[in-house]
């Protein structure tokens, strides 16, 4: 009885989560522009999507900003973890408190705060202001991912390497980096997805001339939904599916190896 209830419940939640997405996928192949009439299979909306210069530019901006922001955030965040470890516990607590602010704060507040900052210092809004803002909200995730990887043992091994004649740089590369690597990787990936997914902060910190996928979707939905956005939804969904499956399979392989 309980089991049956559980199964039915899971199915209901799945339907709730996936039916809307399924509707978009089906409609993306509809020849007609209407959302209620099926006029036959067509790929015309995919064609329209890729012929839109605005969309191609937005896709390029989204991914270049995400990669750069994740890279910068990973470097600053990882260094910060090493720096924080050398500080008094009190200072560390205070800094970690500040670190958590962009993560806990509402995006709209972070967005307008940064917007006012750029306006006050006459920093013209555009690609660079968006990039800077993305690093601001990515760094906390990097720090929270890397921090738990740094333990007392790392420090001892590092000292031992130095005693055995390794240079600081060499010991860092051979001892510290491998210890931190899983945290660094997940921090980078988390930052990347946060950046790709962001709309609100980008919306307030971009200038008029630059779009990411999110801001372009928003301005197009406001004017009226075109089926090319359904095509985009399908592509985004399939990409997410493929990436997540790949990540999961890789994780399974690693788990299996560790089981030996």
């Amino acid at each position: 009885m309980r089991k049956i209830f559980g199964r039915v419940y899971v199915v209901i939640i799945m339907l709730f989560l996936y039916l809307p997405i399924l509707a978009l996928i089906v409609l993306s192949f509809n020849e007609a522009k209407s959302m209620s009439v099926w006029k036959g299979f067509s790929l015309r909306w995919y064609e329209e999507l890729f012929h839109s210069k605005l969309m191609v530019q937005a896709i390029a901006n989204t991914f270049s900003i995400a990669i750069l922001a994740a890279l910068i955030a990973t470097i600053i965040g990882t260094l910060a973890v090493l720096g924080l470890a050398a500080m008094k516990p009190r200072t560390e607590t205070v800094l970690m408190g500040f670190n958590n602010i962009p993560m806990l704060n509402a995006d709209i507040v972070t967005g307008i705060a940064l917007m006012l900052f750029f306006l006050m210092f006459h920093w013209p809004r555009g690609y660079l202001t968006v990039l800077f803002s993305h690093t601001v909200f990515c760094i906390p995730y990097v720090i929270l991912s890397v921090k738990p990887r740094l333990n007392k043992n790392t420090d001892k091994l590092f000292e031992a390497a130095l005693d055995l004649g390794a240079s600081e740089r060499y010991a860092f590369r051979k001892i510290v980096l491998p210890e931190l690597r899983p945290g660094i990787m997940s921090g980078f990936l988390l930052s990347f997805t946060m950046s790709v997914d962001d709309f609100i902060i980008t919306y307030f910190t971009r200038g008029a001339g630059i779009n990411t996928i999110s801001t372009l979707i928003y301005s197009q939905v406001k004017v009226g939904i075109r089926p090319s956005l359904f095509a985009l939804s399908t592509i985004v969904f399939v990409t997410a599916l493929v990436v997540l499956v790949a990540v999961n399979l890789r994780q399974k392989r690693i788990d299996a190896k560790q089981a030996y």
Partner: peptide, 20 residues
């Protein structure tokens, strides 16, 4: 010690310019 306070300098600059 691997940890050196100065490593946190960019982070502190980011906190001041990006949050505070």
């Amino acid at each position: 010690m691997i940890a050196k306070k100065r490593f946190a300098v960019p982070f502190i600059i980011w906190i001041i310019a990006g949050t505070v």
